[in-house]
Each structure stands twice: as structure tokens, then as C-alpha cells.
């Protein structure tokens, strides 16, 4: 596909006005743009528009978090304390690694190095998978101590397991006495609310990463085949912006979910 790009695509200064002279301009410049710069800026702005809707999408959840944390401050800190801030911190750094490799993938695109794009994106996917691996490890423990917010949720059991540093195997239900304790303790519902927000926010963040893997896989195939040029790499840059956005969401999730209760004892 597009193997003739570089031959005819030497100059973007050819008048792009006439649709009737379809071969008179670079094949990596769409008819309706004046030049490569304008084409690049338009694509870039479009991606930022999409990212603004993503900010609002996550913003709704940050809004819900704000309200309930304000109302149930003490229990939110105790619930946050159950999460491991060290694992969250390690994951933050893994995600930063994936961001820098993605930035270098976009840089390779700016230099027109298709194979290098593939390499850096592969590294990004590997770091992304490492992040999800740590997350899966955390979630396995979270399920075992019954903090997943279904009817099996058990606040006092989770608190007890956390306090005594236990890592139980998953069983469908916590021991009955803990449910009885929960029924008497109104704070259990507030703790459940924290974990509802925790699983929704980190789950949607993880889903964004998985979608990112899919988009990167497609871009890598195109890049390998030399589809992108120094003057046309909007898709590479857009997936880069998307990935950095995913990193940004985590930069805020980390202090709000993991560090909120990190100063409390018992971990």
C-alpha cells in the first residue's frame, strides 16, 4: 500500500486546490489541507477534542469521589489504608516507563522511522501489560478479602484481614460472624462506597489501557509497512496522546485512592 508515497510526496508546497489534478500533490497530504502543517494541526486538535470528552467522562467519577469522600472522610481513609500504596507506587512508575517509550515512538514517527515506532510501541505494550499484571495481583487479594462491592462485600472481614496481615484464599463468602458485625456497623456501607468507586475508576482506567493495546496493534502494522512519513503521522501521535492521557488519569487516581490512608498505622 502507499509505496509510492516518498516519490510523489517530496513536496507539500504543490497547490492543493484542484481535485481534478489528483496526482499533483503529495499522497500523504489530504486534498482539503493547504500543507502538512495544517493537516497535522487539524488532526491534533481533533484528538484533543476527544480527550476533553474523556476528561469530562472521568470528571464525573472524580466528582462522585469528591462528594462521598467529603461526607465519609474517616471511613474513606480507613478503606484506602486497605490498599497497598507501595504496589500503587510501583505501578505508577511502570506506567511512567510506558509513557516515555510512547513519547519515543512518536519521536521516531517525527523522524519517519517506521520500524522504530514498532519497537517503542512494543515496549509500551509490555510495560502496560506489567501494570495490568500488578493490578490483577492486587485485585485477586481484594476479591479474597471481600472488598469487591457486591452482596458478598464484608467490611469488618477486610479490616480484620488487613490488620492481621493475612492473605486468605478466595472463598465465596466471608465467615458469618463478620457479616453480623457489618449489619450492626453503619460504616460498612460507607466503606463499600469507597470500593465501588475504587473498582469503577481503576476498572475503567484498565479498560482504557486494553483499548490502547488494540489501537497500538493496528498502528504497529501500518508503521511496519512504512505507511507513515515525516509529514504524516497523526495516528501515531494521537495514540500517543491517548496513552499519556491514561497515564494522567492514574497520576490522580494514585493519591486519591492509595495515598489517602497511607499515613494510618497497620500496614
Amino acid at each position: 500500500m502507499h509505496t509510492d508515497t516518498k516519490v510523489t510526496g517530496h513536496s507539500g508546497q504543490v497547490q492543493a486546490g484542484g481535485h481534478d489534478v489528483g496526482h499533483g500533490h503529495a499522497s500523504d497530504l489530504a486534498h482539503h489541507f493547504e500543507n502538512h502543517y495544517q493537516q497535522h494541526e487539524a488532526g491534533n486538535l481533533g484528538m484533543w477534542m476527544f480527550l476533553s470528552t474523556e476528561v469530562l467522562f472521568f470528571g464525573g467519577m472524580f466528582g462522585a469521589y469528591t462528594v462521598y469522600r467529603y461526607k465519609f472522610e474517616k471511613v474513606f481513609e480507613q478503606a484506602s489504608n486497605i490498599l497497598d500504596p507501595l504496589l500503587g507506587g510501583i505501578n505508577t512508575i511502570i506506567l511512567l516507563f510506558s509513557s516515555v517509550t510512547m513519547a519515543l515512538a512518536v519521536r521516531s514517527a517525527q523522524q519517519g522511522k517506521g520500524k522504530a515506532i514498532v519497537g517503542w510501541m512494543a515496549a509500551t505494550i509490555i510495560f502496560g501489560l506489567a501494570f495490568l499484571g500488578v493490578k490483577a495481583f492486587e485485585w485477586k487479594h481484594d476479591f479474597a478479602i471481600h472488598v469487591f462491592p457486591t452482596k458478598d462485600f464484608c467490611w469488618s472481614y477486610a479490616r480484620e484481614m488487613h490488620k492481621t496481615h493475612q492473605h486468605p484464599e478466595y472463598k465465596p463468602n466471608a465467615p458469618a460472624k463478620f457479616y453480623e458485625e457489618d449489619a450492626k456497623n453503619p460504616e460498612s456501607k460507607q466503606g463499600k462506597l469507597f470500593f465501588f468507586l475504587y473498582f469503577t475508576m481503576t476498572g475503567l482506567h484498565g479498560l482504557h489501557m486494553i483499548i490502547g493495546f488494540g489501537i497500538m496493534a493496528v498502528i504497529m502494522v501500518y508503521a511496519w509497512n512504512g505507511y507513515y512519513t515525516k509529514n504524516y503521522f497523526v495516528p501515531v501521535e494521537s495514540v500517543g496522546l491517548y496513552w499519556h492521557f491514561v497515564d494522567l488519569v492514574w497520576i490522580f487516581l494514585y493519591p486519591l485512592l492509595y495515598l489517602l490512608g497511607a499515613h494510618l498505622a497497620s500496614h
Binding site: W48, F62, S99, L248
Partner: peptide, 29 residues
């Protein structure tokens, strides 16, 4: 977040429209 946006996301060299787009979404949140 500022460091990621400015340098990884190249906003230090993007145009005013991009900056306005970012500002408006953050403002709404």
C-alpha cells in the same frame, strides 16, 4: 500532570486552540 501534558504531550509547542480545549475541559471538571 503538568509535566506529562507539557513535554510528553507536546503542549509546550502546540497552538492556542489546543490550549483552549484543554483549559475548557479542566475548567468544567
Amino acid at each position: 500532570a503538568g509535566l506529562v501534558v507539557l513535554f510528553f504531550m507536546h503542549v509546550f509547542e502546540s497552538g492556542p486552540l489546543t490550549k483552549l480545549t484543554i483549559f475548557s475541559s479542566l475548567f468544567m471538571v
